[in-house]
Design a protein around this nucleic acid. Structure first.
Lengths: 367, 367
DNA sequence: TGCCTACATGAATCGGGCG
DNA sequence: ACGCCCGATTCATGTAGGC
């Protein structure tokens, strides 16, 4: 299943495999600046889990009669600092990071990733439609988990498929709170004894939204706490490459089996709604060059004011000259203006937006 | 309005007043172990850069007040450490703390309050029913804020009115995510110029739920960042005593006026807090994310024409792409189409309308 | 009065490509 | 690296005003 060297600029990445071992060591063995997206679901808290390991692989002794809360936070913070630093090293400059956690650990992770220079883009709430109730009635039902989405640095050109996410949400822009069910039923993996294979298996729906929204097909997605491989399975279905790291053999075995049974969706289905920004750029002057508009012809704005087209693709309206955008902005007294949608032309008695002419050129370019 | 010495064990507390000055100094002037609940809405340290305009070119009125400016994370952290320590000193051993923040500051606050020995009971998400959109389409709509509820120490006997909260939630256990509208309309306080008196006034419904759920009548509630006094107003309505601290005279003046007009047990305030349970909107994309439909699967219309499902929840039929409604309308040459009833899927040889899958999700959400 | 439309606005870390 | 300039981008509410 391993595919070497498929990804541009990444030398010898062990694509679509699960690496066995400590995530910090394994990440340090990967080339720097090679990963597009990291999704990390680290252990939430050593108090609850008791299976936290230091970077040197020694086990943290969680059972202590003189329970010292501060020192245990210090150990968890060191672990967080080290794995985040390793993750940061392998991430491409325009890469991004997702972490997920609960109130036990997410504040410490969030503060540390800010300290390391990650730039938070959103915190996203996974609102569980079917959480476990609070049986003792002593607190609020813990009905959500928190994710943090961050670019490697301020100014990083992260991937955000705005239109695809908007489509997933039936035409309304996607919010920072996601209502999704927890993983159960047939999706919940069982071990040989019929017990759940992993205590905190994440639902595929969650990773679907993460990967559709913040990666492109062919991107390399790294999950340093792979568990039973939800990240890898969804990446494979969506035509992304993955690298998993998992220290527990039992989880790796379940994940391998799962991935072998996972199929990629067909190519057409992987196409998502693309943003207008990604479409080829058409200079307005091309409409004049191509004779779709004649120099001297008159454009009209929504309020009936007119401007005249000049041979070089600029407009003139009274004393104002400039591009379709500049003249539009000037007439509106606005800081900016999209001239394509602002101006129209009279054709057969009707006002036709000039954007239609641009669409015509674009569709010709497709053939 | 001042009532001295009303509260058992609290000597000379300036109850039901607004203290003018720095919150750390003012808290240090209060007796230790005297406060039942602290609600703190500190500056978020937003770090905004340039101006932001809406698509209609109007300018967004940003939070650029001097009190939200910090020169670095280190400076903000010191501020957080100091006010939390002062808050901790005045809190009774069985007292509790609420803080509210956004991703800009909440991780740092959460980590610091854990460091100081506060014991987190829940993080609670305020899901805004009417948030401001993301105008540039570069991120998820920032549709929530995060609150942290913590006792002074592990083992503290905090107040939690389980049954009252359950009653507020129509008989269902209260969850850690609260859907409430932002503060606007008549509740939003204006200054003498008719401008909003405070850029970040919190809704009374939020404080209503906090105070009903985690205080008892007669408790002393301290708000070290009082602003225009939402905490005080709701405390007064609900028969709790409050102490406010506010540095800015303009805010104190508005708050004094507001409190003078506030009456205990205001029936209207109780009304707003009860949210209606609307039929949840299910985007078609959620069927794809949840694996009920796979990308690449085929839908069929009443006349046997087919369309293919894509990963972002759009359909493709020939050259036509778009939502289930758009593609349906295009095939019918109709202005609109209800895709939910128009499209079916083959299941066990039969055509099953996709609306059945939607109903399945809705019934799951009822539980 | 009532209905309809237009307008205002909210804790926001809100470009990118080419020269 | 920097500057210019194209051109993409909004949801839910409350209020005001017209008819």
């Amino acid at each position: 299943m391993t595919t070497m060297n498929k990804n541009k600029g990444a030398s010898a990445l062990p694509l679509n495999t699960i690496l066995a071992g400590d995530c910090i060591e394994m990440m340090n063995s990967l080339p720097e600046n090679s990963i597009d997206l990291i999704f990390a679901d680290p252990p939430y808290n050593l108090q609850l889990k008791g299976d936290l390991h230091r970077p040197d692989n020694s086990k943290v002794d969680a059972v202590d009669d003189h329970w010292d809360q501060f020192s245990s936070f210090a150990v968890y913070d060191r672990f967080t600092r080290d794995w985040l630093a390793a993750a940061r090293r392998v991430l491409k400059p325009n890469g991004a990071l997702w972490v997920i956690g609960s109130y036990h650990n997410v504040f410490r992770m969030g503060a540390e990733l800010q300290n390391q220079g990650f730039w938070i883009l959103n915190d996203v709430i996974w609102r569980k439609s079917n959480p476990m109730p609070n049986f003792r009635g002593k607190r609020f039902t813990n009905a959500h988990e928190t994710m943090i989405w961050a670019s490697k640095s301020e100014g990083g050109k992260y991937t955000f498929n705005y239109e695809a996410l908007k489509a997933l949400n039936e035409g309304i822009q996607m919010r920072s709170d996601w209502v999704l069910p927890i993983c159960n039923g047939g999706e919940r993996l069982k071990d040989d004894n019929g017990e759940k294979a992993h205590p905190t298996q994440k639902p595929e729906s969650l990773l679907h939204r993460v990967l559709v929204g913040t990666t492109n097909p062919g991107d390399v997605v790294l999950d340093p706490f792979f568990g039973t491989g939800t990240t890898g399975a969804v990446a494979k279905m969506l035509g992304r490459d993955f690298i998993g790291i998992e220290r527990e053999e039992a989880y790796r075995k379940v994940a391998e089996k799962r991935l072998a049974a996972t199929r990629r969706f067909d190519r057409d289905a992987l196409q998502v709604s693309i943003s207008k920004r990604a479409q080829p750029r058409i200079p307005f002057g091309q409409l004049v060059e191509r004779g779709m508009l004649r120099p001297g012809e008159t454009l009209v704005n929504p309020r009936g004011k007119t401007a005249k087209v000049r041979a070089d693709g600029t407009l003139i309206a009274g004393d104002t000259r400039g591009s379709i955008h500049q003249v539009g902005a000037a007439l509106e007294g606005a800081p900016s203006c999209n001239g394509w949608t602002y101006w129209s032309i009279k054709r057969e008695g009707k006002d036709v937006p000039i954007d239609l002419l641009r669409q015509q050129i674009r569709s010709e370019m497709d053939h």
